[in-house]
Amino acid sequence: MFAGRHANVTAVRRKNNEIIFYEVPRTSKPWIQKLKKIPLVRGVVAILESSAKGSQHLNFSMESYAEDELADTSTETESTTAKPAKKEEKSGWSLTMIVGVAVAGILSFAFGKIVFTLVPAIIEQLLFQHSFNNRVLHNLIEGVIKILFLLSYLYIISLTPLIKRLFQYHGAEHKVISAYEAGAELTVSNVQKFTRLHYRCGSSFIVFSVLVGVIVYSFFHWDSLWERIYLRLLLLPVVLGASYEALRFTNALRDLPVLRFLGYPGLWLQKLTTKEPTDDQVAVSIASFNRMLELDGQVSKP
């Protein structure tokens, strides 16, 4: 999946080697555009928006995969009669379906973020509540637990074939972007020469949310576990917004020799969230990126 200025495009390779596209124009309400200009607030808006749109594109790829799997188990007669109906159904996504998938994506992100925020805080409270009174140290230990929790989770799910394949496509996206930014011709052999790690990846945001959370939580005092949980939930939008600003800041400094190390934690995490892609996967990513450029070019024409 690639997001351009005017369109988001996802490419999927079917089992017959045909590459199909899911294309969604990038449109936002005027009030959303205004919110995107407000520091701290724009981060929360961007995260929720990307979660909603990402769920739609992921649902499209899952439907395409399911159709291929279903076709393999169907008879030749059944497949010839069912395929036209499926294509008609897919092309006719209703507004209700799209909104439903978007809401599901936002709720999934919110639930996951709440779990990864509260569980480490609860564990730290239960283990070290009476060990010392230093609030900053409590937050640091909570941050360490959160990072260990996150790394363990990513490592475990990366062992499953489906998630490994997803992470390979993630790596292919990064390679294509890096090749394009370097001015290289977008061929499979050229793209494969570039790194699968990229500064602007959302994985970097995850790391910053942990580090920023340690700082933000240190300014607030709690006396009980429930008060600590309440503060974490209340401050979650603040942490997300500040993390987004930190990510923008490090992206702006990534070309400075001394300060580029600020983005290294996010790059290290991408060792887990990306895998080396195959040539076929890179080819799909190139097709998606080129289609996105094509759509952007059509909109930009006077």
Rank of each mutant, 00 (worst) to 15 (best):
L197I: 14
H198E: 13
Y199F: 10
Y199G: 03
R200I: 00
G202N: 11
I206T: 07
F208C: 07
F208R: 10
S209P: 03
S209F: 00
S209N: 06
V210Y: 04
L211I: 14
L211R: 04
G213V: 08
G213F: 01
G213D: 02
V214I: 15
I215G: 03
Y217F: 13
S218K: 14
S218Q: 06
S218L: 11
F219V: 09
F219C: 08
F219N: 06
H221S: 13
W222G: 00
D223E: 15
S224E: 03
E227S: 02
I229K: 07
Y230F: 12
R232K: 14
R232D: 02
R232F: 04
L233N: 01
L233S: 01
L234K: 13
L234G: 03
L234E: 13
L234R: 06
L235S: 11
L236Y: 04
L236Q: 09
L236F: 10
L236R: 05
L236P: 01
L236V: 13
P237L: 15
V239L: 08
V239Q: 05
L240N: 03
L240H: 02
L240G: 02
G241H: 07
A242F: 04
A242H: 04
S243G: 09
S243M: 04
S243R: 02
Y244I: 05
Y244N: 06
E245R: 05
E245M: 11
A246D: 01
L247K: 00
L247I: 00
F249V: 03
F249M: 13
F249Q: 02
F249C: 10
T250M: 02
T250A: 02
N251Y: 01
N251H: 02
A252Y: 04
A252K: 02
A252M: 06
L253M: 15
L253S: 05
L253N: 04
L256K: 12
L256V: 10
L256G: 05
R260A: 09
R260I: 10
F261G: 05
G263R: 02
G263F: 01
G263D: 06
G263C: 09
G266T: 01
G266S: 04
G266W: 00
L267G: 02
W268S: 06
W268L: 15
W268D: 05
W268Y: 09
W268F: 11
L269S: 07
L269N: 04
L272S: 04
L272H: 08
T273Y: 10
K275T: 08
K275W: 06
P277C: 12
P277I: 14
T278K: 09
T278G: 09
Q281K: 11
V282F: 09
V282T: 14
A283H: 08
A283Q: 13
A283S: 13
V284Y: 00
V284R: 04
V284M: 05
S285C: 15
S285T: 12
S285G: 12
I286K: 06
A287I: 11
S288N: 08
F289M: 11
F289W: 10
R291S: 03
R291C: 04
M292Q: 09
M292R: 12
E294K: 12
L295D: 05
G297A: 15
